[in-house]
Design a protein around this nucleic acid. Structure first.
Lengths: 209, 209
DNA sequence: GCAAAACCTTGATCTGGATCAAGGCGATCG
DNA sequence: CGATCGCCTTGATCCAGATCAAGGTTTTGC
């Protein structure tokens, strides 16, 4: 745990602010807690190609020490509430509080596990397995404690174009797979974006792992 | 930097050993420096599908604190020399030496950057862009300081099947793309595995980013 | 040194998902 | 309220890369 003095220092240096949906989050060196909303991380290739390489769902932590080799853009998918700390404060505290460094390391390794999971999906899963895996991932992040056998519903924070850019597909294929899942009774769709899952267990059979 | 006492402790607890090509590296909780050789990290999907999610080239560091959510297997692609430390030593020292925690964090973030780069390749690059990117990656790891404009050569430490499992392709497609690069004069191939690159710059034009 | 086994290449054909095309909602706005 | 715009769906067709097939080459083992 962090010491009381350090918690107080963080609280004193923090500032709360809001970012509207669609706005890019500039990569000043700050760190933030994501209090609400969803953020996408994207990597751009020539020819207008885009790959989404990760998401942040509330409550998550964002920001990183050291420079990235490759530029990654962060953009708010929904309205977003942040609680930010100056980079210098965190960087200094990493050296003073081993527990903070441990937490950052644990967090980075979780993101690495996620990225590798999606490498496997991008390289080796079929379109319908990708879409099922995607719905499971969103469901798991929106309600981490949900019982696998019971039904749940939520609003997708992404457009079909974003989903396609995450799964390495086109919007038409994503749309067709949604339609297929609906006609198979695995999901219901209201208003394009509102999804009801019959059960997480049912989707797991379609997710290809 | 680590203190002399800590370096001495590490040296005292370390043990040198060797792993032959093709052998799986068991995931006891130890940490190792990879002194020579190449290791692949794989994730398995049902139906015999496999995705390689990363490599370690010498000199690299392997091992991770905290449990991974998903099982990842590590296998030696070549004969490998390791210098290993017990997990308990490292885990304890993380709390004593902030600099060690920083290094582990930096290392994890580099692996995360790499994984995200490959997500973009898997999701959005063509077969020939993937193969060119792969060759650049291998070349860069085998000789990090190589001049981009001059030619270089090396032995691929992977079979065509491994390359296919890394790039999300089939062995036939990998083979055809190698043949095409050869007939275009971008590479030369001797003995299936020995590759000569005319220049890194030439490949960069084909790698799709 | 010969045979078997691994690994690799090349050709022919097939197919999952891309591309092209044509509307169908629902919001926002005048 | 009707028009425009952004987003989504569905159908028709196409093609990059998969699959199927047939050797060729290199390595391994006896």
């Amino acid at each position: 745990m962090l010491k009381a003095r350090q918690l107080a220092e963080l609280a004193g240096a923090s500032s709360r602010h809001e970012v509207p949906a669609g706005m890019e989050l500039s990569d000043d060196g700050t760190y933030s807690n994501l209090l609400s909303g969803v953020i996408k991380l994207t990597r751009n290739l020539p020819g207008g190609r885009q790959q989404i390489v990760g998401f942040h769902f509330a409550p998550d932590f964002l920001g990183r020490p050291f420079e990235a080799k490759r530029p990654i853009k962060a953009e708010a998918l929904t309205n977003v509430e942040l609680c930010s700390f100056p980079g210098t404060t965190i960087d200094r505290m990493i050296n003073e509080a081993p527990e903070l460094a441990r937490q950052l390391l644990r967090h980075a390794l979780n993101e690495l596990d996620d990225a590798r999971d999606w490498m496997a999906a991008l390289g080796r899963k079929t379109a319908s397995e990708k879409v099922a895996s995607f719905l499971l991932m969103v469901a798991g992040n929106i309600d981490p404690a949900h019982h696998p056998a019971s039904s749940m519903s939520f609003d997708l924070p992404l457009t079909r174009a974003d989903i396609a850019d995450f799964l390495g597909l086109t919007i038409e294929t994503v749309s067709r797979e949604f339609s297929r899942l609906r006609s198979d009774g695995a999901i219901q769709i209201a208003n394009k974006r509102h999804i009801s899952l019959a059960s997480l267990a049912q989707l797991k059979e379609r997710c290809g792992d």
